[in-house]
Amino acid sequence: MRGRASYEMVSGDIARVRDFVREFLISAQNLRGWAVSARALDVAQLVASELATNVCKYAPGPCLVDLEADGTTLGIVMWDSGSVLPVASAADPTRVGQHGLELVLMVCKSLEVHQETVGKSLRALIDLADSPDTPLFGPATG
């Protein structure tokens, strides 16, 4: 199942991206009968929101969002016209803000960043169903 939307990344578009992801996953449940956990629905919206926020902050202008699900995994691909590739900052509990990419890395199965002919694309993969080994808050440390 696939979906695509484009946004100018003006006021309210981050919420529209989040809504697009939620509606896509609800359609996947209703039309295909795929299991989508509440956690996956929340994580997908969080990831889409964080990626869209980065577009607004660092690559203002048009943005394309492609969604693809196979019944077990959701792929979110976000393309923007910015040429600078995002890099997660080193962990710093005293830093205020700029934790979006860190969060995305913690909750996704994988994240790929690609330089494109024009701009860049980010591809996040999210498991749709919970499993016993699905961490709730990222990998344990210590």
Rank of each mutant, 00 (worst) to 15 (best):
R2E: 05
G3I: 05
R4L: 09
A5L: 08
S6A: 15
S6L: 10
S6E: 15
Y7F: 15
Y7H: 07
S11D: 12
G12W: 11
D13P: 01
I14Y: 09
I14A: 08
R18W: 05
R18D: 04
R18H: 08
D19R: 15
F20D: 02
V21M: 05
R22I: 02
E23Y: 13
E23W: 13
F24A: 05
L25V: 03
I26Q: 11
I26V: 15
A28R: 08
A28Q: 11
N30F: 01
N30L: 11
N30Y: 03
L31N: 08
G33I: 04
V36M: 03
S37L: 05
A38Y: 07
A38L: 11
A40I: 03
A40D: 00
L41K: 05
L41C: 03
A44E: 01
A44M: 06
Q45R: 14
Q45M: 15
L46K: 02
V47L: 05
V47A: 00
S49F: 09
S49G: 14
E50T: 05
T53E: 14
T53W: 09
N54Q: 04
V55P: 13
V55K: 01
V55R: 01
C56V: 15
C56K: 12
C56D: 07
K57L: 15
Y58C: 04
Y58W: 14
A59Q: 02
A59M: 06
A59R: 02
P62M: 06
C63E: 04
D66M: 03
D66I: 04
E68C: 12
D70N: 15
T72A: 12
T72C: 05
L74I: 03
G75N: 11
V77N: 02
V77D: 01
V77K: 14
D80P: 09
G82M: 11
S83N: 11
L85I: 13
L85M: 11
L85H: 10
L85F: 12
P86C: 01
A88C: 12
S89W: 10
A90T: 08
D92G: 06
T94L: 13
V96N: 06
G97L: 09
G97D: 07
G97C: 08
H99Q: 10
G100N: 12
L103H: 03
V104G: 08
V104E: 07
V104P: 06
L105Q: 09
M106G: 09
M106L: 14
M106E: 06
C108Q: 00
C108S: 03
L111M: 09
V113N: 09
H114F: 14
Q115P: 02
Q115F: 00
E116M: 14
T117Q: 14
V118I: 12
G119V: 06
G119R: 05
G119H: 02
K120F: 07
K120I: 10
S121M: 10
L125C: 08
I126R: 01
D127N: 10
S131C: 08
S131P: 01
S131F: 12
P132I: 03
T134Q: 06
P135A: 03
P135W: 07
